[in-house]
Write a protein that binds this DNA or RNA. Structure first.
Lengths: 149, 149
DNA sequence: ATGGCTTTCTTCATACGCGTATTATAGTCC
DNA sequence: GGACTATAATACGCGTATGAAGAAAGCCAT
């Protein structure tokens, strides 16, 4: 992401976005040490969980983003040698993103980096904090939908 | 912004980033109705609070982002007619971003839209929730710094 | 005063997200 | 079988973020 939303005082939207931006920056910094970014790690994660390959459209769906975005993300992963594009034998319209060996390796390292970052950040929270946070996140994400007149 | 960080289960980093992305999307949607975005509103805010104008470097500092970013943001605000660039009488290296009348008007509307979005989102939270969130945000943003070895 | 650092802004390359064409392939219906 | 529609990937334009490198202006010290 990279929010830029500075301001913060109080616990309003801006404070939340600022904190999220800081968290993301922190995690991304850890990941960049192994040549990854959060979007790249997420893509590798979906591919590996799916058994090593997916049509780009499927990948887009699992990443909850638009197709054109995945096209570009896979371009970058391809340039990094972490995935390759191969024809889909079942549907000639479709192309498969396939994780390479280097991709699996990067995923291993990236996952460890991510877990470590998570421990650093969330280790500062008590278990009640974590529980509150889960509730708050739930409320915030559903608030928009219900007030969606 | 648009984080793309899908996954979410539990209250880990990914869930937090996902929620923040959703919140940002929501606020941005409200702002786009008045022709603004969060970065643009933030820039207008800093300029107006500073009395109507700032050198670009100062603006970058107050937005907590890099200069090149502000150059482009001011380009867009300029194109929108919300800000103009004027020479700094005190230092010819420097250029001032100056809010226009249209800029002040947009700021008024944008602020109202932002406040309304805030009410919608945070209205779903109890006052204990808000208090917890403030604490959590504080802990998360300082955790990184203290474990910064 | 001139030569050398610093500061200010801009430009360029890159990454990531969105939406909207456009193109190729598949499936369907007359 | 040929036209229509649905779907997959891509191309393109744009907003927002970063960082590196350049140009112009100021400052300082010899």
């Amino acid at each position: 992401m990279g929010s830029s939303v500075a301001d913060c005082r109080g616990a309003g939207v801006l404070a939340l976005l600022h904190a999220a931006g800081a968290v993301e920056t922190f995690v991304d910094a850890k990941l960049s040490a192994v040549g990854l970014s959060l979007p790249k790690l997420a893509a590798l994660d979906r591919l590996i969980r799916a058994g090593g390959s997916l049509p780009l459209g499927q990948l887009a769906e699992r990443l909850a983003c638009v197709r054109s975005n995945v096209t570009q993300l896979v371009d970058r992963l391809d340039a990094d040698g972490l995935v390759t594009r191969e024809p889909d034998p079942n549907d000639r319209r479709s192309r498969l993103a396939v994780v390479t060996e280097a991709g699996r390796l990067a995923y291993e390292k990236g996952s460890r980096a991510h877990l470590e970052a998570e421990r650093r950040l969330f280790g500062a929270l008590s278990s009640e904090d974590s529980a509150s946070l889960a509730v708050i996140i739930e409320k915030l994400t559903t608030a928009r939908l219900t007030t969606h007149d």
